[in-house]
C-alpha cells in the first residue's frame, strides 16, 4: 500500500511540475498581451475573417479573445459588445459556434503536449473543424436571411 501511495504521489507531482513549467510562462505572456492591448493591433490583420464568415468587424476582437484566452473571457467580451449593440444576432451565433469548438488554444494545446500528445494534429484538427463548421453555418444563415428578405 505504501508503494502504491508513493508511486501516486511522485507521479502526480511530476505531472503538476511539467504543466507548471508551461502554464506560468504562458500566463505571463498572455497577461502582457492583454495589458498592452496587443489584440487590438492583431485584430487589424484578421479582417479577412469578416469576409470568410460574413460577420461584422466588431466580432473579430471577441473571437480572438476567446480563441486565445478562453471561453469565459471570450463570453465576457461578447456580452459587453452585444450590450453596446455592436453585434448582430448572426454574429453572435457564428461567434459562439466557433468558440465552443475552439478556445484557449495555447493553454489547451500545450497542456496536452506536456503529457505526450501530438500538438500539430491537435491544434490543426481543432482549428480546421471550427473554421469549417462556422463557414458552413454562415453560408446557411445568409441563405436563410436572403430567402426571408425575398418573401
Amino acid at each position: 500500500m505504501m508503494m502504491i501511495l508513493k508511486e501516486g504521489i511522485i507521479g502526480s507531482l511530476k505531472s503538476v511540475y511539467t504543466i507548471a513549467v508551461i502554464v506560468i510562462p504562458l500566463m505571463v505572456i498572455l497577461q502582457l498581451a492583454k495589458d498592452y492591448h496587443i489584440l487590438n493591433k492583431i485584430a487589424e490583420k484578421f479582417t479577412f475573417i469578416t469576409k470568410l464568415f460574413s460577420i461584422s468587424k466588431e466580432a473579430i476582437v471577441p473571437l480572438l479573445v476567446g480563441l486565445i484566452f478562453g471561453i469565459s473571457y471570450g463570453a465576457g467580451v461578447i456580452i459587453q459588445s452585444s450590450k453596446e449593440g455592436n453585434l448582430t444576432k448572426v454574429d453572435l451565433v457564428l461567434l459562439i459556434t466557433f468558440l465552443v469548438t475552439c478556445h484557449a488554444i495555447f493553454e489547451d494545446t500545450l497542456v496536452f503536449v506536456a503529457v505526450g500528445a501530438n500538438g500539430y494534429i491537435l491544434l490543426g484538427l481543432r482549428l480546421f473543424m471550427a473554421i469549417l463548421i462556422t463557414y458552413l453555418l454562415s453560408k446557411r444563415l445568409s441563405q436563410k436571411i436572403s430567402i426571408q428578405t425575398k418573401e
Binding site: V16, V23, I24, M27, L30, Q31, D35
Partner: peptide
Amino acid sequence: SIKEGIKKGIETTWMLG
C-alpha cells in the same frame, strides 16, 4: 504585468494541482 502573470500562473498551477 509580469508579476500579475506569474501570480495567475501560480494560481492556475495550484488549482490544477
